[in-house]
Computed example of a mutant assay.
Amino acid sequence: MSIVIENVGKTFIDPKKNEVTALENINFSINEEEFVVLVGPSGCGKSTLLNIVGGLLSPTSGSVYFEGITEKNPNLGIVFQEIALFPWRTVFQNVIYGLEEKGLPKKKQIEIGNYYIDMVGLSDFKDAYPKQLSGGMKQRAGIARALAVEPDLLLMDEPFSALDAQTRTLMQEELLTIWNRTKLNTLYVTHNIQEAVYLADRVIVLSRHPGKIKRIISIDLPKTGRNDEEYREKSSRYADEIWQLIRHDAEEALKE
């Protein structure tokens, strides 16, 4: 199965009634078991594009479709920066929420919920409420909730940006561990170039508005161990290549 983004464009009407083009002529695909990362300067339309792929926004032009899937509505798992766990539900109850909505039998909900809670390392906290969790633990609960519906596509919009640097590094490592177990088609948005290089199979670099694809960069590194000494120089070269593509647009965005 692959997800095809074909000639996608998006325009909005701003508060002054002007038409603003957020995205223009976006074309790429997410292949089977591929982790694709979107990067670009502020205001380039990364989150808008992710929301279009996730069906939360309609494109003004173009289309998004799933090849090789028979269901009319593909199964999606979404993790946002603000996880928005239900505060009145425990970790377990949050994780199985999507399964309840799908009407799965209670026994199956318990089985699947416990499986993904264990996968993200929260088995000892499954009866805890969100207010009792650290930021990283809340993110892990949100990831487990997204995984529990066993999605055809996992969408992640800057899920670690609100975390401190140490927790963010640990969460990146945990995410790769989880991904290597699930091999889900994934579209991930980040401002962080090093994070993009660390996680991605391919990095899609977007330009400042209107967002267009500047370049698609394949990351020719093993999926795990990219922080090891033997790969650091090559990782740094990828990060520098991406930064040189973004730098001017980022400076212009800062002026605004």
Rank of each mutant, 00 (worst) to 15 (best):
residue 207 S to C: 03
residue 3 I to H: 08
residue 24 E to N: 10
residue 43 G to K: 00
residue 80 F to E: 07
residue 84 A to H: 12
residue 158 E to V: 11
residue 197 V to W: 02
residue 58 S to K: 15
residue 188 Y to E: 02
residue 172 Q to F: 05
residue 45 G to H: 03
residue 248 H to W: 06
residue 189 V to R: 00
residue 219 I to P: 02
residue 247 R to A: 12
residue 147 L to M: 07
residue 231 Y to K: 09
residue 103 G to K: 01
residue 110 I to V: 14
residue 87 P to V: 11
residue 102 K to V: 06
residue 165 A to G: 07
residue 126 K to G: 00
residue 231 Y to C: 11
residue 176 L to F: 07
residue 141 A to R: 10
residue 63 S to W: 09
residue 183 K to D: 05
residue 168 R to M: 04
residue 140 R to E: 07
residue 228 D to H: 11
residue 90 T to Q: 13
residue 45 G to E: 07
residue 39 V to S: 01
residue 248 H to F: 13
residue 191 H to K: 02
residue 174 E to N: 06
residue 89 R to W: 11
residue 209 H to N: 13
residue 199 L to Y: 01
residue 229 E to M: 13
residue 74 P to M: 05
residue 226 R to Q: 11
residue 140 R to L: 10
residue 40 G to K: 02
residue 188 Y to N: 01
residue 204 I to E: 01
residue 27 N to K: 01
residue 139 Q to R: 13
residue 30 I to C: 13
residue 230 E to S: 09
residue 88 W to K: 11
residue 64 V to S: 11
residue 176 L to E: 06
residue 94 N to E: 05
residue 178 I to Y: 06
residue 2 S to V: 12
residue 64 V to R: 05
residue 160 F to T: 06
residue 106 K to L: 14
residue 150 E to T: 07
residue 209 H to Q: 15
residue 17 K to V: 02
residue 233 E to M: 10
residue 238 Y to A: 02
